[in-house]
């Protein structure tokens, strides 16, 4: 997927850079983009390290197993294959719990761990249906309090600040439900790998 995306982006960018006389800006973008990717990755290394460590503590203490048993009735419907075969159930539970608690920066590392765990028992490079459901849920990122947006609004002197949370909850909630439903339907149509 990424290879094709990069191909499309580079062809389109070249085309527009020539037409809009932006070749200089594109040169800068290529160089600065490469170094920006390092900054992004490094900031991710810290969060990944911390949450993977926490995850392992909770796992060894048996807490995630209890939580996973508790959430099983719901998660079984969303990730049928993983829960049927007992693969990565603890990792998926941890990721979804972080998502529901609104700890968005923990959801990413936990989702990566979950997908790695599902992948570890497979021999193909094609994503399984459960992996895709997890990724789509990640895209509808649920934040209990969208702190960045509220901070920007307060700084700009807005009178409506915290009130935006209600539409945000409804919107991300509905996106998550719709995402799961679409994934399950498409998973049925295309089959699993």
């Amino acid at each position: 997927m990424l290879g094709k995306c990069f191909g499309v982006l580079s062809v389109v960018s070249f085309f527009f850079a020539v037409i809009c006389h932006n070749t200089g800006a594109v040169c800068d973008a290529i160089v600065s983009g490469a170094s920006k990717s390092v900054t992004l990755t490094i900031s991710l290394i810290g969060i990944m390290t911390l949450w993977s460590g926490f995850m392992n503590v909770l796992k060894q203490a048996g807490i995630i197993k209890k939580l996973s048993r508790l959430l099983r009735p719901v998660l079984r419907l969303i990730f049928p294959k993983s829960f049927k075969n007992g693969v990565a159930t603890e990792e998926i539970t941890a990721c979804i719990s972080a998502n529901l608690l609104g700890i968005a920066n923990a959801a990413t590392p936990l989702a990566i761990t979950a997908i790695e765990k599902i992948q570890s028992g497979r021999k193909t490079d094609i994503a399984s249906s459960d992996m895709i459901t997890l990724a789509v849920l990640g895209c509808a990122s649920f934040n209990l309090v969208p702190t960045t947006v509220i901070a920007i609004r307060q700084a700009a002197g807005a009178s409506i600040t915290y009130e935006i949370m209600f539409p945000v909850w409804i919107c991300s909630g509905l996106c998550m439900v719709l995402g799961v439903v679409l994934c399950r339907i498409l998973g049925k149509i295309y089959g699993d790998t």
């Binding site: 995306c5 973008a29 290529i30 983009g33 920006k36």
Partner: peptide
Amino acid sequence: VVGVSMFTAS
């Protein structure tokens, strides 16, 4: 990141 930066800059 390089792809996306090119895309917005172009």
